[in-house]
Design a protein around this nucleic acid. Structure first.
Lengths: 237, 237
DNA sequence: CCAAAAGTGTTAGTCCTACACCCATGA
DNA sequence: TCATGGGTGTAGGACTAACACTTTTGG
């Protein structure tokens, strides 16, 4: 490293990690992926998946790599955005470690299987983890809370909800995603109208899907519009 | 630093900096604070103010300290929020430097004066810096663009606009802030109604202020509400 | 009185909500 | 034909944009 970089009593280099808050919707519930730590510190405790950023990769590339190594998930198919940096000097007992948190959203993903790091990973319903969250390693409870707030906010004014659906989806599936995140019933007919009247939100595929019972539903895929205006307001609640 | 931290060919420690995108509204224009770099690399080029995070401070504390050292601004009086981390491996010619960008918004601030680092600081109207921005040091043009997008978005659904006003302000002053950011006229009467009907957005002080000419205007201060629902939509535009 | 800016009222149109109703399928 | 979920229609109310109008000041 060049010697024109400042190194003094006040300024020291830090370790950089990425941590991932990975969400999916399964059985009408918002789930987050946690891992059981296999190393000190916090050995055996639950944590968000993550790891060190390597020398020659971008932060995003590091997040994608950890997504694969720790969770067995190919990130090219899901929504990945940066949440923010967490760098309190005492957040890691090993020393100064600044972590860049990423938010990942994907359709109902396969349960992680054995054989890799991902074997230690498991899905947890966020509705049930209020007590569990306090036991998370590092400051991961804070990161998780920030991630949840970010999701709820972004649902109102972006098309991010489609990230929880597969390649093609019905409007009912999309609506159930909103209902899971907002914890509130939405009127199917009004929801349909709002979504379809926002040009570019979704795009008809022309195909249909048969529900277990009832009339076949039209299939849609993501449109090109990301920012929704007007936003899909959640009711007064 | 503990030896249980990974150090290998792939993983190396990094330098952590904070960079500040500081905005104010003056003469109905959105302005950003830039500095002329006094050190290599990019000596003499314009850049966002910023510097190294010290050993025992949080990222936010580092941002507040740089705000004071580089811009002569006491940050306790303004809005300061984290924008995100920028850490491409080649963003700094000196080596791996990850920067945490902060967004700062404040009322018309005193022009930085000589005698300190802040002597090199100057306000630039964002409307005019399209060409200038390309010449900024490091990836600061990207950070600045992200900051502007964040401001415009947050104006719609938060009360962040009040950060550009002083302790107390008239509704016209607040409206002019919106007009400066959105580059669009707003109907004074409709604006007033929207703001006042959003409970907790602003709070009457009972005082008045005399404009250069015309009827005195009632003064308000920030209310306790941060999230606006419904959002102050910017018109179809 | 006039100009300028604050502040109120009104109206026509748009959007939203709630809910009734029809449609297409499997059993 | 029944149950189930998909999909359309509609009436009342809420919200909005546009703009006319009144109020209060200094000159």
């Amino acid at each position: 490293m060049d010697d024109w970089l400042k190194d003094s009593d006040e300024v020291k280099p830090s370790w950089i990690t990425v941590d991932l808050a990975i969400f999916t919707v399964r059985a009408d519930q918002l789930m987050v992926l946690l891992v059981e730590r296999g190393l000190e510190p916090f050995l055996g405790r639950s944590a968000l998946p993550g790891g060190y950023v390597q020398k020659d990769e971008t932060l995003r590339e590091g997040a994608l790599r950890e997504l694969w190594e720790e969770a067995g998930i190919n990130g090219r198919q899901l929504h990945l955005e940066q949440l923010g940096a967490y760098g309190d000097p005492d957040r890691d007992p090993r020393g100064r470690v600044v972590t860049i948190a990423y938010l990942a959203l994907g359709p109902d993903l396969p349960v992680p299987v054995g054989g890799t790091d991902a074997a230690r990973a498991f899905w947890t319903p966020v509705a049930e983890l209020t007590e569990v969250a306090e036991g998370l390693a590092f400051d991961h409870a804070v990161i998780l809370a920030d991630a949840l707030e970010e999701i709820r906010r972004k649902f109102e004014y972006t098309a991010v909800a489609t990230a929880f659906c597969g390649e093609s989806f019905t409007l009912s599936e999309l609506r159930k995603v909103y209902e899971a995140i907002w914890g509130q019933r939405l009127d199917p007919s009004n929801f349909r109208r709002k979504v379809l009247s926002t040009s570019g939100f979704v795009q008809s595929t022309g195909e249909q899907r048969l529900p277990p019972t009832g009339r076949p539903a039209a299939l849609y895929r993501r449109g090109s519009t990301w920012l929704l205006s007007p936003p899909l307001l959640r009711g007064v609640g």
